[in-house]
Design a binder for these strands. Structure first.
Length: 460
RNA sequence: GGCGUCGUACCCAAGCGGUCUAAGGGGCCGGUUUGCAAAACCGUUAUUCGCCGGUUCGAAUCCGGCCGACGCCUCCA
């Protein structure tokens, strides 16, 4: 049984999709004004984990992730770089897709672009105006009237008192009726240049929040199962989405909200404005593999803050290597794949942990315990009938969820030749030569292990 | 100021009132194995869970206070 911690109720709830066997999932995507950083990817990695666990449980998942390709930041960056908006956003969208692929994140079914869905946003805003949930401003902007939605604040549990917003009201350049009212549509200004759409109430561009409300409901229906994002999107973004969507459709919006905690660096939040962040490309050039990064991001629970540090690189490498060795050992152990092999009993426990609010730390612990047990059996030549096949089934599912075991590398002929030379030397007990060849193989990036069943090679 | 999270071994980290003399991983040290390595395995590394009180037959787990770290309160994954 699947259970998730719903941010809306702040409780773990058992999860039942609206349609049997199918899950509609919307995850907030990046604003493509710059390269995404590893903190952003923690959230995307968590969402990928969620999707994999849903699939593992036997559900079909329809996953939509938006791309914010128009907003204050993209417009400003494009202007700064003297570049058309679209050229800038296409460049970073491409980089984003590349990073996702490199990190082995399963692609969404669709990545709708905000700029291609402005019509839908305009009609949602029109409907909100019509129903009295929004009002126009002299400059062509349209604001959502928070006072018209009594349940506002249900997700973030914030209470809006006059004192709190008094300061901001005074310094606000817009003539909003209330400080917490937010822009559905931003009237055109000089800075916007040619970034402009026509709406019945005037030229301008959509506000940020309306984009997700409009696109999520367009692709998944007015009422769908799961919406995710980082904790910092809880307020105001998701709170505003709920208000807009429910007021526009008159129906419930999302059943389950899941939010991942921040990735920290040096004990503080990783963010663009602080400048304390790593991009995927930076980590790549530091020698991180996707498997290593996946391990760093998935070994802590998604609702706890985790600290990312370069110092953890060795730890990740060790884990990845151990798992790869284990897989290779199992393969050697089970020459023929037993048809109808069954999962070991530990697999049940592994799954239960994942189904209980994506408990990766405990799922990992279950797998490590199991791995030690099987390794011990192999050491003692004590494997039962079909046990290696069962273990291979388990490790395959394990890797489907975590994705931390790299694909096997083909061994180059040059290395094989060196290995053969070394075997000859060893048979002749020419240890000096054997050691020399081993260090040569080592320098070419491969490890040699002498086992009872012969020497084995593995990629470093 | 308001809302909220967290503080467990050298490091990361689970722990959802009793099976906790506290998982799992990394590291350290010792051992088995090995031509030597590597890998794997075995053993050791917290009588203790930020501090002080309280509730309870029983608390790392619940309550109160204090100290410390962090996040949100309309840029933000």
């Amino acid at each position: 049984m699947l259970q998730f911690y719903n941010s809306l109720t702040r409780k773990k709830e058992s999860f039942k999709p609206l349609k049997e066997g199918e899950v509609s999932l919307y995850t907030c995507g990046p604003t493509v004004y710059d390269e995404a950083h590893i903190g952003n990817f923690r959230t995307f990695m968590f969402e990928d984990l969620l999707k994999r666990v849903l699939i593992l449980s036997g559900l079909d998942v329809k996953h939509i992730m938006n791309i914010t390709d128009v907003d204050d930041k993209t417009i400003k960056r494009a202007a700064d770089q003297n570049m058309p908006l679209q050229e800038l956003t296409e460049k970073y969208t491409k980089m984003f897709y590349d990073d996702l692929e490199w990190l082995k994140i399963i692609p969404a079914d669709d990545y709708p672009l905000a700029t291609q869905h402005v019509d839908g946003m305009i009609s949602m805003i029109a409907s909100l105006l019509e129903k009295g949930h929004a009002y126009k401003d002299d400059d062509g902007s349209v604001y959502f009237k928070v006072a018209s939605f009594p349940k506002y604040g249900q997700l973030s549990h914030l209470i809006f008192e006059e004192q709190q917003s008094a300061d901001r009201m005074a310094s606000d350049e817009y003539s909003k009726e209330a400080a917490q009212d937010f822009a559905l549509w931003k009237g055109w200004k000089d800075d916007d240049g040619n970034v402009v759409w026509d709406a019945p109430w005037g030229k301008g561009r959509p506000g940020w929040h309306i984009e997700c409300s409009s696109m999520s409901t367009e692709y998944l229906g007015d009422h769908f199962d799961i919406h995710c994002g980082g904790v910092d999107n809880m307020f105001p973004h998701h709170e505003n989405e709920i208000a807009q969507s429910q007021c526009a459709s008159g129906k419930p919006f999302v059943n389950t909200w899941l939010h991942s905690e921040h990735l920290m660096v040096e004990g503080g939040k990783m963010s663009k404005s602080e400048g304390n962040y790593y991009t995927v490309n930076e980590l790549k050039s530091q020698g991180f593999t996707p498997e290593n990064i996946r391990y760093q991001l998935l070994s802590g629970h998604y609702r706890t803050k985790i600290n990312f540090s370069l110092a953890k690189k060795q730890e990740g490498e060790k884990i990845v290597k151990r798992l790869s060795e284990f897989k290779a050992r199992l393969k050697a152990e089970s020459n023929e794949t037993k048809l109808g092999a069954e999962f070991p009993k530990e697999y049940q426990l592994f799954q239960e942990n994942l189904f209980c609010d994506l408990d990766t730390p405990n799922a990992l612990a279950v797998f490590f315990d199991y791995m030690r047990k099987i390794n011990r059996k192999i050491d003692n030549d004590n494997m039962g009938e079909g046990e290696a096949s069962a273990a291979l089934l388990f490790i395959e599912k394990f890797n489907y969820i975590f994705g931390i075991i790299p694909d096997d590398n083909a061994i180059p002929g040059e290395i094989i030749n060196l290995m053969n030379e070394r075997e000859t030397a060893r048979l002749e007990k020419d240890w000096a030569l054997a050691d020399e060849i081993r260090s040569k193989i080592d320098s070419l990036g491969w490890n040699v292990k002498d086992t009872q069943s012969g020497s084995k090679l593995s990629k470093k």
